[in-house]
Amino acid sequence: MEQAYNFDTVSQYNDFNNHETLHPLVSIIDFSKANKRTGSRMTFGLYCIFLKEIHCGDLKYGCNYYDYEEGTLVFISPGQVIDVENKVDIYQPMGHALVFHPDLIKGTALAKTLDEYSFFGYNTNEALHLSKKERKIVFDCFSKIESELSHAVDKHSKRLIASNIELFLNYCERFYDRQFITREHINKGILERFEEELNSFFASEKPYSIGLPSVAYFADALHLSPNYFGDLIKKETGKTAQEYIQNKIIDIAKNKIFDSEKTINEIAYELGFKYPQHFSRLFKQRVGYTPNEYRNLN
């Protein structure tokens, strides 16, 4: 039977993995010290970054599995629930993790920028695969944090630990940029499917029932998290996913405006706008003319 665990404090997670708590708000975990375990469901009130070293236990988030192999980083934010499954009944967890409580970074520079690390919002099949060189950098960062944890807590501890975590996250941002490039062929396929989903949406009756489609709508259609999908589109096209959707709306609108039998209001409703004036405002912002002015010009 699957066991359920809630980890709201660092000490709880340390105890679970047979680690001494050196600091109440942050820890580096070596899973080889943990007891063997069975499949479980874990709820976290902590930020966790797992570094997988060998295949042992599959992480499942929602209905999908993480793309989680040797030399892989997975990012968990507070509130996430993770299922850990394995092909054998009992297994030895292996790898390392950085875990820290949200309170650790309050009042630090990292607190102001943490939301910018969008990979904490990635969920399925979107883990970070590391090269050997990148894995060494990760261990170096973990070592710096661990070294600071072994130091007696003083007035400098919080700032130094938060700075080292920020350094680590900045490296992760660089590694993800590299991964978007090395997986370019996969990303191109996603971009093509995005274009197909856009065309299919506006060729259907969905704009009447759903309204204007959101970034989350297309991310879900492509089985990606909104954060990962948004970052991928931005890196592939130079535009945000929202801008890409709006550009498609304008392109379709231009074609519809040539149909003089339809009023501008009818066109707005066909595109999913609840209020025609919102359509006219967006069209004017993007094209420089109102829909009626554009119709008359052409």
Rank of each mutant, 00 (worst) to 15 (best):
M1L: 11
A4R: 09
N6G: 11
D8W: 10
D8T: 07
Q12E: 14
Q12P: 07
N14G: 13
H19R: 11
E20D: 11
T21P: 01
T21Q: 06
T21G: 02
H23I: 12
H23N: 13
V26L: 10
I28E: 12
I28C: 09
S32R: 09
S32L: 07
K33I: 13
K33A: 13
A34W: 00
A34R: 06
A34L: 03
N35L: 12
R37P: 01
T38E: 05
S40Q: 13
S40N: 08
R41K: 14
T43Q: 11
F44P: 02
F44N: 07
L46R: 01
C48D: 12
I49K: 03
I49M: 08
E53P: 03
D58P: 04
L59F: 09
N64W: 11
N64F: 13
N64K: 11
Y65P: 06
Y66C: 12
E70C: 13
G71N: 11
L73S: 01
I76A: 09
S77I: 06
P78R: 10
P78E: 03
G79M: 13
I82T: 12
D89N: 15
A97N: 10
A97F: 03
H101P: 02
L104E: 03
I105T: 08
K106S: 06
K106C: 10
T108R: 04
T108W: 03
T113F: 12
E116D: 12
F119A: 01
T124S: 15
H129S: 12
K132G: 04
K133A: 09
V138G: 07
V138Q: 04
D140L: 02
C141T: 00
K144P: 11
E146G: 07
S147T: 12
E148N: 09
A152N: 01
V153Y: 00
V153T: 09
R159M: 15
R159T: 15
R159S: 15
L160N: 11
L160S: 10
A162C: 09
N164Q: 08
N164C: 12
I165K: 06
E166I: 14
E166P: 07
F168N: 09
Y171D: 14
C172A: 08
F175V: 02
D177S: 08
Q179K: 00
F180K: 09
R183T: 12
H185Q: 15
K188D: 14
G189Q: 03
F194I: 01
E195T: 01
E196G: 02
E197F: 06
N199H: 10
S200H: 10
F201P: 04
S204Y: 07
S204L: 04
Y208H: 08
G211V: 09
L212A: 03
V215S: 01
F218D: 06
H223E: 00
S225K: 06
G230Y: 05
D231G: 10
L232Q: 05
K235V: 02
T237L: 02
G238Q: 05
A241W: 04
A241S: 03
E243T: 13
Y244P: 00
I245E: 08
K248L: 00
I250G: 11
A253M: 01
N255K: 11
F258W: 10
T263W: 05
N265Y: 06
N265K: 14
E266W: 05
Y269Q: 13
E270G: 05
G272R: 07
K274L: 03
Y275V: 14
Q277D: 09
H278N: 15
F283Q: 00
Q285Y: 05
P291N: 08
N292V: 14
E293Y: 04
E293D: 15
